[in-house]
């Protein structure tokens, strides 16, 4: 009996190594491990063994069975793996199935960021026409006829009194004409300038205008709001300055500069070695403007500001030619 067990053990060890496929392995299982297999047969003959020897032989038999089972299991894992390797090759380095990815124009993205900051400050958004009349674009904004300030903005005319707006400021007038104070709005939109197209200027661009009118609005608060905006939009560590300037519809008027973020204020080509970048124009709404819309300039005060989106977009992405923005090369668009 013992010899038989020993012989079977050797046999299984040899045969398992000869199992080259799952079919071979199945034959092996039927031959040794199945209910009618050789090991089960030996168990059947256990009753013929003398009672004294039975525990020892039984133990050996059990060992044979578990050993054979282990050989089988190990071989099975191995064979299954090799099956995968040989017949179902998956090249996991193949590229994924992709789709075209769209994009928003960088001007839109910049505008969205600006809008979102002012939305959180309680500004509403309004729009106005691009074909505008002289009254809203100039006169009501305190540009008298024959005033040299009109030369600051080269204008496309459609008729004597109708033109393409040169700034988004006429919408200030339109809002005040239709809305009672307080007014707190921003106005994004397209504006036109009759200037030759070059790397630095295009015949049209986009602006965001802001207007806040209420009781007790001060220049101090204008500064506060715009600095808060600049810190959110650019960086909380920027330095800023406000310089006196001139716009007919604000008084006092200012231009806001921030430290050049390209050279950290050390002076570079973009900031013309000054260390400062001009980012917007602003000021307290001129009392003459209130006269045109029937607001009481004694009771109310307010501020207005405006910025060019192309300029900001170009600065932040390092684009050095404005025409690239209107060229719409998809290799450019897909970078955003």
């Amino acid at each position: 009996m013992k010899e038989k067990i020993e012989e079977l053990k050797k046999l299984t060890e040899v045969e398992i190594a000869n199992c080259k496929s799952l079919t071979d392995l199945e034959s092996f299982r039927i031959k040794y491990l199945a209910r009618k297999g050789s090991i089960a047969e030996l168990f059947d003959t256990l009753k013929n063994v003398s009672p004294e020897e039975r525990p020892v032989v039984g133990k050996a038999l059990n060992e044979l069975r578990s050993n054979t089972q282990r050989l089988f299991d190990e071989r099975k894992v191995l064979l299954e793996m090799s099956v995968n390797v040989e017949t179902k090759i998956v090249d996991l380095t193949l590229p994924g199935r992709r789709r075209w990815i769209g994009s928003l124009h960088p001007i839109t993205q910049t505008l969205n960021e600006i809008k979102n900051i002012f939305f959180r400050m309680g500004f509403d958004v309004v729009f106005g026409p691009e074909i505008e009349d002289d009254y809203h674009n100039f006169e009501a904004l305190n540009f008298p006829p024959d005033h040299p300030a009109r030369d600051m903005q080269d204008t496309f005319f459609i008729s004597e009194n109708v033109l393409l707006r040169t700034h988004t400021s006429p919408v200030q007038i339109r809002v005040m004409e239709t809305q009672k104070p307080p007014v707190r709005v921003i106005v994004p939109g397209r504006v036109y300038r009759n200037e030759a197209i070059s790397a630095r200027s295009y015949c049209l661009f986009h602006q965001v205008e802001g207007l806040y009118i209420d009781e007790g609005v001060t220049f101090s608060e204008l500064k506060g709001t715009l600095v808060a905006f600049a810190k959110q939009f650019y960086s909380s560590s920027i330095k800023f300055r406000f310089r006196p300037s001139f716009f007919p519809f604000t008084e006092p008027s200012a231009e806001m500069d921030i430290t050049c973020f390209l050279c950290s204020g050390k002076g570079c080509r973009v900031c013309k070695q000054s260390g400062w970048l001009e980012i917007l124009g602003c000021g307290m709404v001129d009392p003459n403007v209130y006269k045109f819309v029937g607001y009481d300039s004694e009771k109310l005060s307010g501020y207005a500001f405006g910025m060019g989106i192309e300029r900001i977009t170009m600065l932040r992405y390092g684009i050095d030619d404005i025409r690239i923005l209107f060229d719409n090369d998809v290799r450019f668009l897909k970078q955003f």
Partner: peptide
Amino acid sequence: GYDRIETKTTSYIKFSSQTP
């Protein structure tokens, strides 16, 4: 000097209309 005028914001926000 514009830079000597204090830079401040009112401590409350007046809403001109609903947040869009």
